[in-house]
Simulated scan of single mutants.
Amino acid sequence: MCRGRCKGIVPSYWQRRSPARSRVRSGAGSAPSPWDENTVPPSFLPQLKTPSILFICTGNICRSPTAHVLLMHKARATGLDVEVDSAAISDEERGNPPDRRSVAEAKRRGITMHAHVARQVRKSDFDRFDLIIGMTAQHCAALRRLAPAGTEDKIHLFTEYAEGIEGDVPDPWYGGQKDFIEVFDLIDHGVAGLLAKLQAEAR
């Protein structure tokens, strides 16, 4: 969605404790153990990091905010804790809200687009997020040029998670509402695949 005016790119984790509780039994005839009541000191409980996902598109007003809101919506429905954000390669749309056609399609499907202001990807995002998912191969290439050493493996193409689909997620900005519907369907499919992967890793 550069529209010929794209500028160059500018080169919290939440933690939760596992609900599972260990039980340590004392030997027969020994003094009662303070750990016998299905509990252990908090310092012994495993620390599980909430997965964090950043979606990337060109201007951060169509594709990436749609993926953002869909993952939030689906994760909430399944009870999965996840940190989600979205950002742009270009700074052209910085400060703008989501495209009204993206908002309308989400609303048509019963999903309220969260309050969102487009922003450009930052180098600090590569430390903050576990997965940085570009909508096109070009986005991924730009992200790799920006990525600090050792963070390149976090970058993935969105359609890696959309079973049966390869290549880029097309930019609907140049089309009509029909294009927004088709892209919404594609993103919905990919987000479902991503969520399934996150759930499997959380088990």
Rank of each mutant, 00 (worst) to 15 (best):
C2F: 06
G8F: 13
I9K: 13
P11Y: 00
S12W: 04
Y13S: 04
R23P: 01
R23E: 02
V24F: 02
S26D: 08
G29D: 07
E37W: 00
E37F: 01
T39N: 01
T39M: 01
F44P: 01
Q47P: 02
L48R: 10
I56N: 00
T58I: 10
G59F: 06
N60Y: 11
I61Q: 13
C62M: 09
P65S: 07
T66Y: 00
T66G: 08
T66M: 14
A67T: 03
H68K: 02
V69C: 05
L70Y: 09
L71Q: 03
M72I: 07
R76Q: 06
A77V: 05
D81G: 09
E83H: 12
E83Y: 07
D85R: 15
P98F: 03
A104G: 05
R109Y: 03
R109K: 12
H114L: 14
V117T: 07
A118I: 08
Q120P: 04
R122N: 12
R128V: 05
I132H: 04
G134C: 10
Q138R: 15
A141C: 10
R145G: 14
H156Y: 08
A162F: 07
D168A: 06
D171M: 09
G175E: 10
K178W: 00
F180G: 09
L195I: 11
A200Q: 14
E201Q: 09
